[in-house]
């Protein structure tokens, strides 16, 4: 029942704090959630990917994640700097389903808050919950090291309840993966993201 509260809570919050206020609340919740999960360290990518498959990392509290080991991201030397991962089911899917079944249509405030985030922060939310979820992943990834190197999460794409897709072109460009490839992954997933060594990019290193 706690999850169902999101829609009425967001509806109430929008009337009091506006859509921008709700976006700020959600961003803080995502950050605080990830920070309170603690830090993790893995000796290498195989160890990290096994932990992801087995659901032992803070990143997999959101649900079952497919580790796409065929989509290794490499730097200019051919060294692996990260992988692409696909979240099978959006964590909000059961909640949305029960809300529609038991209460009625999802309130407009859900889209209003997502639009506010898309216009002001990054065009990557298909529902208001994406805001906290994506922030959680970003901060959680920063708290994980692989071979003593900090990680970074790049949101690549996600799919909404009605099938609308949000792609993040700058992230796709950074890991040098084609948009069509990600769309094919989205056929059987709800959210696609990359985990890479912080500050790295496919093909070359970022100049700080």
């Amino acid at each position: 029942m706690m999850d169902i509260a999101i829609y009425s809570l967001v509806d109430d919050m929008v009337s009091k704090a506006g859509t921008e206020g709700v976006v700020e609340y959600w961003l803080r919740v995502g950050e605080s959630y990830a920070e309170r999960m603690g830090k993790e360290a893995y000796v290498g990518w195989p160890a990290f990917n096994v932990a992801m498959k087995e659901g032992r990392t803070s990143l997999t509290v959101e649900g079952q994640v497919n580790v796409l080991t065929d989509l290794a991201i490499t730097d200019r030397d051919g060294d692996v700097i990260g992988y692409v991962y696909a979240l099978k089911t959006c964590p909000m899917a059961p909640t949305m389903g029960r809300y529609i079944l038991r209460i009625g249509p999802i309130p407009d405030s859900d889209t209003d808050v997502a639009d506010s985030y898309n216009n002001r922060v990054r065009d990557s939310a298909v529902s208001n919950y994406c805001i906290t979820h994506q922030k959680f992943r970003e901060v959680a990834a920063n708290n994980i090291t692989v071979a003593k190197q900090a990680l970074e999460c790049l949101q690549l794409a996600n799919k909404g309840m009605t099938g609308e897709v949000k792609m993040v072109p700058e992230s796709l460009e950074r890991i040098n993966v084609d948009e069509r490839h990600i769309k094919s992954i989205l056929r059987s997933a709800s959210c696609v993201f990359a985990i890479i060594i912080k500050g790295k990019t496919a093909g070359e290193e970022i100049i700080e």
Partner: peptide, 25 residues
Amino acid sequence: MNEGDHMSQKNIESNPFVDVSVFLF
């Protein structure tokens, strides 16, 4: 989310990830 996610909605449980985030909210 997948189209398949909407199958058998009646009995599916919430994702605890969402539940916890509401407490944090």
